[in-house]
Every structure is written in C-alpha cells, then in structure tokens.
Design a protein around this nucleic acid. Sequence first.
DNA 1: AGTTTGTTGATAATAACTATTAATTAAAAA
DNA 2: TTTTTAATTAATAGTTATTATCAACAAACT
Lengths: 146, 146
Amino acid sequence: MMDAKKVTALLRKKGFKVTPQRLAIYNALCNTKAHPNAEMLFNKLQPYYPTMSLATIYKTIDILREIGLIQVINVGEDSLRYDATVELHPHIRCTVCNRVDDIMDFDFSPAIKNVAEKTSYDLSGQQFYFYGVCPECQAKMSKKIS
Amino acid sequence: MMDAKKVTALLRKKGFKVTPQRLAIYNALCNTKAHPNAEMLFNKLQPYYPTMSLATIYKTIDILREIGLIQVINVGEDSLRYDATVELHPHIRCTVCNRVDDIMDFDFSPAIKNVAEKTSYDLSGQQFYFYGVCPECQAKMSKKIS
DNA sequence: AGTTTGTTGATAATAACTATTAATTAAAAA
DNA sequence: TTTTTAATTAATAGTTATTATCAACAAACT
Ligand SMILES: [Mn+2]
Ligand SMILES: [Mn+2]
Ligand SMILES: [Zn+2]
Ligand SMILES: [Zn+2]
C-alpha cells in the first residue's frame, strides 16, 4: 500500500509514465477489501473515467503487478481478482455469494517446512485458498429454513 | 482410482451411459501423474480415438467430476488440469517447465484449525498450490551456468 | 513550446470452454 | 434378438475473459 507520491516515483523509476488512469486503478485497489476483478474495477471507475476502456484496466494491472504493487488472485472463478496487499496471505471464497475475504496473520512456515521435506523442488511461493459459506449467507440460509 | 467394472457400475447408477470414450478418458487420467489439461488428454487419446472431439473431453470431464471420480486443479494457468486422485492434496508447479506434481501425505488439519479460528466462515474445503523449480529444471540451470 | 516516446481507448483477435443439433449408439423394453 | 427410447457423439457455432493492434493523444525531457 503506497501513497500517490511513492507510486508516482516507482512508476517513473521503472520507466513507466504516470497517468491519472494508473493512479486511479491503484487507488481503487487500495481502498477496497473486495478483491475486485477487471470488470468490477471498470464499473467502479466508470463514473469518474467514463472513457476508460477495459483494455486500460488490464494493461495497468499488468504493470502494477510487474512492479510489485499488486498481486493476482486466482480463486477458481472464470476471472482473476486483484489485491493491493502484496504480502502472501490465504483467501477464502464464499461458495454461495462468491465474496472473497482475506485470512491475515496466517503462519505459512509449518506448511512450507512440511512441503520442503517432501519435494525436491526449489520452493519460491505458494497460494492457499479456502472455501466455505460466509456469515451473511449463513444467516440468510438459516432464515430460509425457519 | 476405480477399475473399469466399478466405473461402469457407477456411471449406470448415476444415470449416465457407459461409452468407450468415457472409459478411455478416465483410464488415461488414472494412468498418468502429469495432471493433464483437456488438450493434453485430447492429444494422448487422438491415436486411439481419432474421431473424438475436444467437446467430448470437456463433457466427459464434467460428468466424471460430478460423480466424484476426478477433481479439477487450477494451478493458475490459462487452462484447468484434471486428477484421478480425488483426495484433496496440495500441488506444486514448476515455474520453468510448468510440470505439476503432487504433494502427498500433507496434513491439512493445523492449517484448517488455524483458519477456522480466524474466520467466521463455515469451512468446506481448500486448495493449496506451491511454486518452485523442479529438479530437472534445476539441473538444466546449473549446467547452463557452468 | 516543441519533440519524443510511451499510453489510451476503440476495435479486432485469441483461446478455453460451453451450447446446439443431427446422426449415432447404448440400453431398456418387447 | 429385435425394437424402441433416450442419451451421446462430434461437428460446429457461440461465449467470455483476456490480449494484441494501432491511430490519436499526453507525459516527460530539453
Ligand atoms: Mn487479500
Ligand atoms: Mn494430484
Ligand atoms: Zn456469502
Ligand atoms: Zn521444471
């Protein structure tokens, strides 16, 4: 999570131009916990940047990922989601409403140690995805039954 | 992993017809550890079933998944992979050659317990993916350097 | 301000997967 | 075994997320 000044500096340093679209897309990602996909970002920014196209979203996302400002989340849907928190952390998706939440302060080290013992791969990263029913959907379901 | 007889019985029981294509696709998945995607399966079966189309592969895979004979693996590529081992187990993908290997005998329970404490979701499953460089690619890389 | 060069946004292309449908075939009924 | 019925195959068309192309444009450097 960087402020606009730092993002500006980083983009320039990496040889990319600083445009309002790029700042807006990064800013939108910093100000949500919803892990939006490209279309959700597009819809969110539409009122403020009515001429911006989806192609710009995709290209900006690729640049932000390349310079380490965001990470890509693949929770097994038909589209990818994006996250301005770049530290690796597990995610959980509601199998009813498809919302995606963070699981923070998860200690990967026991799992990594476990895997390092079992494989001769040179490990470089991991992604953990959990599935379940979110509190809101649990509430709705118990209402329907009664 | 079921033999042809059991697969036949299960398909019939679930109301699906037993066809050579279906048995061949399941059999191909049982006899590989490569976690093939649809195209890899198609190419493998092409010599034996030259008229079989990709659509048949996809539909069969969907049926096999529905009746619990296979699972779908999403290791963050642009296509899905399939696995005749239905017990949940982590996978590791080589970031150089993209091969996908199993990690067996991994104990999920500490991680699940950890997550259950941190979230108010009603947990139902999980997928763990690891990334790294496989032994073969490590060997190739050390050769190149010397 | 003028020049250079990367960027935007409209559009076309790609690729994995899904839907449609006529011909075929498995399996139940006779 | 033959007939009947309904599911399946395979060819083909459709869908959708993502990527490529390119002319107009704007950021950065002088
Ligand atoms: Mn997150
Ligand atoms: Mn596996
Ligand atoms: Zn939910
Ligand atoms: Zn490799």
